[in-house]
Design a protein around this nucleic acid. Structure first.
Length: 687
RNA sequence: CGCGGGGUGGAGCAGUCUGGUAGCUCGUUGGGCUCAUAACCCAAAGGUCGAAGGUUCGAAUCCUUCCCCCGCUACCA
């Protein structure tokens, strides 16, 4: 029944999330949501698209986490694989297969690539000395050795480079090396590894990159930067137990390095998918087919692996499709600060889902997707986007249309009649919309696409307003009916166009329109063109998307604030111990002064904040302090207190705080002001 | 130092590749409407597009120089 348009074959992947922790909205915004939107759009277009992902379950970080938790690595990966898989499902990320790299099929694939390279003589075997932690009985990756920089004597240099002076060196050059795992001094032990000669592919990669001028600027910049420096041999094996075993007798205790093996997970996940659908060779249709478009959605930290190393691996293997595009996104910050998993400063998917619907976050993240630069998520912005855009513009149009028909036309789609100018205008808008939105999506511009989509809803509201059906219903019910008929057609168009962005709301709207079949299986290009006939019975109207209350948002903001303040507390065991001692120099950096409180008052609409004016010697300053719960402002006036005088000023509730007042706090949060035991004069130094 | 990113009305951002009336959301002000989730529509105020030069009939956009901010440290995409 459908005119067979030429189907495109597309294989889409999203970066394999590392199964040593939960997922946060930054992951979603970068690699998963844009990919899912793209994939859903391609499906509606009728293209043959397969969307592949899975858990990355190897690597040292997982074994270390397992040790910390006192469990087996398997328990860690099982836990996070299940958790993350479920989070993705709840957010509507529509993978065709979500695999895991611990499966036999993946180990086989990894070994196959290694063996192939080994037999072709591509790999170079190199002997080297590496640090070995005898207590942990393992070789130490660069990141897990620390010592004094041979160049600048900085005491906390990492195994491969010093962050203080920026110099690169070999981990064996470190002075007084220590294992970050046990804290013990490691010994040097000889070992050997196989290296993949990236340099041999320099020319091929250059040509490959040159053939993709359409790639995003940030991706090209990174890659050409790498090529300019010259590609070096890179080890593809490691001395570890956890991972894909190197398939050679002489390498019993070695595994494939994750960077090499994890990207192959895309291939093994596709193989698994093919098996599941009962056509075990189907994966070749995508991976070994020149006419298949391979698209990798990733975060910017992953660019070199996907745009340099993976293509090189595929070139070496021969017979595989090279990535056609690598849309890499930048990072998402949270309320102005970088995401920090160690500090638990993030919005975790599982937490979010307890309080809010997935589509609200999908909408928000799609509209602030970090496509060209890092972007910032804030709860306030999330609320505004949900309430004034999603609800106010989109939801409201649907609602006002459907309730109007319910009230005045018994929920049946009214008759159409001769169109007037406004009718033609809005019909033109909806018929052009699929192409407008689609053109942006083809170029991976999710924010633009979303905007184009929302413009339809904006136009729809304008149409409704200008046609004034609430007036014509009394004067000319035929005309009124014609207006609402068009509103229904607009709603249907919106349902299809919103599916990639807001799949859950699309489903709901499809049901409200009482349409047959699955919204996810509709035809993109029918949107705005195939209409619901007059007389069709609609379902009872319901609110499509709900508003989000201030209270809920305030609670989330508080949660984050608490976390950003507990730097070093909680999880960061390792770093905490080390940072518990400060040097005298560090102490001297803090300028503590005696000050007199001149005025003190509560800051309006806050529970804890006091606004104080203090005198420090000649100077007067405003300080905002969070002590109102335990200290009455009037009791403080005239007192001598201790302030940190050289603290960076900060805005708190719009008021600048030029310092910090010291107070003692016990476990229950009770406060007591610190003061001096005699009149010593304000501005006096504390030392 | 080097590499990368950024500097656009009160806030947050788009537009820069492919020069041609500076746009969006929020906020502010005024008006309209009352079907709708106090939602919707219209209008106004508000910008030397970091600075200076250059190319051009024409530059936010291309070129040069300079200034400022951020990242390149963290088991974070």
């Amino acid at each position: 029944m459908s005119k067979e348009i030429k189907k495109e074959k597309i294989l889409v992947t999203s970066a394999l999330p590392y199964a040593n922790g939960p997922l946060h909205i930054g992951h979603l915004a970068g690699a998963y949501l844009p990919a899912d939107i793209y994939v859903r759009y391609q499906r509606l277009k009728g293209n043959d698209v397969v969307y592949i992902c899975g858990s990355d379950e190897h690597g040292v970080a997982i074994t270390i986490r397992a040790e910390q938790d006192g469990v087996q690595p398997k328990q860690i990966i099982d836990r996070f694989h299940e958790l993350n898989k479920r989070s993705f499902e709840c957010f509507g990320i529509s993978f065709d297969n979500y695999s895991r790299t611990s499966l036999p099929i993946h180990h086989e694939t990894g070994q196959e690539f290694f063996s192939d390279f080994y037999q072709k003589g591509i790999l170079k075997k190199k002997k080297e000395k590496q640090f070995y932690d005898e207590a942990a009985r393992m070789f130490l990756p660069d990141r897990y050795v620390e010592g004094t920089c041979p160049n600048c004597q900085f005491p906390e240099a990492r195994g491969d480079q010093c962050e203080k002076c920026g110099s690169d060196f070999n981990q064996t050059e470190l002075i007084d090396p220590k294992s970050k795992i046990t804290g013990k001094t490691p010994v040097l032990k000889e070992t050997f590894h196989w290296y993949f000669p990236l340099g041999d592919f320099q020319e091929g990669l250059k040509k490959y990159l040159d053939s993709h001028p359409e790639w995003k600027q940030n991706v090209k910049n990174y890659c050409y930067g790498w090529l300019k420096q010259g590609l070096k041999d890179r080890a593809i094996t490691r001395d570890l137990q956890w991972g894909v075993k190197v398939p050679l007798e002489e390498a019993r205790d070695k595994v494939l390095y994750v960077w090499f093996e994890a990207v192959l997970g895309y291939i093994s996940s596709t193989k698994e998918w093919a098996q599941k659908i009962g056509e075990p060779d189907r994966w070749r249709d995508y991976w070994q087919n020149e006419n298949c478009k391979l698209v990798h959605f990733i975060g910017k930290d992953n660019i070199t692996f996907h745009a340099i190393m993976f293509p090189a691996i595929l070139m070496a293997k021969k017979g595989y499709t090279l990535p056609d595009s690598v849309p890499a996104n930048e990072f998402l910050n949270i309320q102005g600060d970088k995401v920090s998993t160690s500090r638990d400063y993030a919005v975790w998917l599982e937490d979010y889902l307890e309080n809010f619907p997935p589509d609200s976050m999908r909408y928000c993240l799609a509209s602030i997707a970090p496509e060209t630069k890092d972007s910032d998520f804030s709860w306030k912005d999330f609320q505004t986007r949900n309430n004034s855009e999603l609800v106010g513009i989109l939801g409201n149009f649907i609602n006002r249309s459907l309730t109007f028909i319910d009230k005045h036309f018994d929920g049946r789609v009214p008759q159409q009649k001769q169109h007037d100018e406004l009718d033609y205008w809005i019909l033109k808008q909806i018929s052009e919309a699929p192409k407008k939105v689609g053109d942006q999506l083809e170029r991976f511009r999710v924010r633009q696409a979303l905007k184009a989509f929302m413009n339809v809803a904006r136009d729809a509201n304008k149409y409704f307003n200008d046609k004034e059906p609430w007036r014509t219903v009394k004067e000319d019910s035929e005309l009124c009916g014609a207006t609402l008929n068009i509103c229904v057609q607009v709603s249907k168009t919106l349902a299809i166009l919103m599916e990639p962005f807001l799949p859950f709301s699309a489903e709901k709207l499809w049901a409200l329109l009482n349409q047959e079949g699955d919204i996810h299986g509709q035809n993109w290009f029918a949107a705005g063109k195939e209409f619901i006939p007059a007389g069709h019975q609609l379902a009872k109207p319901e609110i499509l998307i709900s508003k989000i209350e201030d209270k809920v948002i305030a609670a989330e903001v508080e949660k984050l604030k608490a976390k950003s303040q507990t730097v070093g507390k909680g999880e960061g065991k390792v770093s905490e111990e080390k940072s518990s001692l400060i040097s005298f120099a560090q102490f001297k950096n803090i300028d503590l002064r005696v000050a007199r409180v001149l005025t003190a008052e509560r800051v309006e609409n806050t529970d804890k904040l006091l606004r104080l004016e203090v005198e420090i010697g000649e100077e007067k300053r405003q300080i905002i302090a969070g002590m109102a719960e335990f200290l009455a402002p009037e009791s403080m006036i005239g007192k001598l207190v201790i302030v940190v005088a050289n603290l960076q000023p900060a805005k708190i509730r719009g008021l600048e705080s030029q310092g910090m007042l010291l107070a003692a706090e016990n476990d229950s949060g009770e406060l007591s002001l610190i003061t001096v035991d005699k009149e010593i004069g304000t501005g006096a130094k504390i030392r």
